[in-house]
Amino acid sequence: QDGSKVDPGVRASYIFNSTIAGIEDADALLIVGANPRWEAPVLNARIRKRYLMGKFPIAAVGPAVDLSYPVDWLGEGPDVLSQIAAGSHPFAEILKTAERPMIIVGSGAVARPDGAAVLGLARQVAETAGAVTADWNGFNVLQRAASRVGGLDLGFVPGDGGMDTGRILDGAATGDIKVIYLLGADEIDTKDLDKPFVIYQGHHGDAGAHVADVILPGAAYTEKDATYVNLEGRVQRGQLAVYPPGDAREDWKIIRALSDALNATLPYTTLADVRRGLVKANPVFQGIDDIQAASWGEFGTTGEVSGAFTYPIANFYMTDPISRASATMAECTDEILGGGEGKTGTDG
């Protein structure tokens, strides 16, 4: 949804390779275009824990914010990243002399128009610093969306001749695209979706539901047996706690029923069929709760990079459909932020 310029062909380019626990093994850290205190508070607490252990220089590229530990803010834009990649910046030497240097790239940093070039620079920094060895991979992307990694593992990206999010929205604005199916897509800019026929599948009636012509009510995470992949690439299972209310159904059942109606019946009728299909699409889904090291490879591009990094979360307190649908949370946000500043939560 956010238009990230990651490479789905190289898994190491979009997961948190060091693992969250592995933060404690690192001995130097560079944060690029991320605010982990808001984007991943539990992970940020692990970084703070490592800082308190001592001998852990931390630098960051992006607008200065309070991360709860001392940070050397090197600058706000990717020009600094270019200097580190070239070895001309002083922090490049700190990374090189570290035994286990770590780089954390924010998902917002690679969602820019020049995101592929930013990703390429970050890869160059990791390689130049020796952050990728036989027993250590210090390159990490900080994904924000639940199971974004799982979608990439399944290849849910535009194919040859396909359109990315930006082009789809442009086509909707001009009227070239007649129908749009929003599968839980609430983090996009919906202002130009007045021309196409919009189908929304999801729960809690968030932004996508507000512009929909037809709503297919899906089950919330507590209402279905589901498979997720966290930012480390760890495949995890969630179990149904309560049944979906009313006409709501598990997402795979809605899509299976729709395939029947379109005379394009999908080849699964049970949850077990779906899970076998996941493994067939990508063997990584075979290992539940396992960490599987990703192979390193070429990813990202070369090219011009410019402009300060911006952080994708404007309102920490309303970053998901459930909190945004809560009147109580809205009142609390008004009180904390002072008059509803940043009410839309994530930018996607």
Rank of each mutant, 00 (worst) to 15 (best):
K96P: 00
T222G: 04
A209H: 12
A308T: 11
L183V: 14
Y69G: 06
V274E: 10
T19A: 11
P245V: 13
G161M: 05
A134F: 09
A117W: 01
G120A: 06
E232S: 13
D164F: 07
I15Y: 06
I255M: 15
A131V: 07
L271A: 12
S259G: 12
M102L: 15
E341Y: 10
V279T: 06
K191T: 14
Q124Y: 01
R234I: 15
I84W: 06
D260L: 12
D334F: 08
G277W: 09
G162F: 08
D160K: 14
L43Y: 11
A98K: 04
G339V: 05
V229N: 01
L262A: 14
E93A: 15
Q143P: 01
K280A: 13
E99S: 15
A264Q: 15
R167A: 15
A12V: 06
V6L: 10
P57I: 08
A146H: 11
A294N: 05
D289F: 01
P158A: 14
N17C: 07
V71C: 04
L119S: 08
R276L: 09
P312M: 07
P245Y: 08
A129C: 05
R100G: 03
A111Y: 00
D320G: 02
P312R: 07
E250R: 15
Y317C: 04
A45T: 13
E331H: 12
S18Q: 13
L74G: 07
D79V: 05
L43P: 00
Q124W: 01
E93Y: 05
L81S: 02
P245D: 09
H203K: 08
P245L: 12
G246K: 14
K178T: 13
A122K: 07
A60P: 01
G175A: 09
G22L: 03
D160G: 13
L74E: 08
G338E: 03
A111R: 01
D251L: 10
A98M: 06
M318D: 04
V198K: 00
A28M: 09
G130F: 02
V125S: 02
L266V: 15
T265H: 14
L142N: 04
A264H: 13
A126T: 08
G161V: 11
W296I: 04
V284W: 10
V32D: 09
P101N: 01
S18L: 11
G115I: 00
N137W: 04
D72L: 06
L30N: 12
A34Y: 05
L121F: 04
E341P: 00
G175D: 11
T302A: 14
S13H: 09
A21W: 02
F316C: 02
G54E: 10
T302Y: 05
R324E: 12
A241Q: 14
G155I: 11
L81R: 03
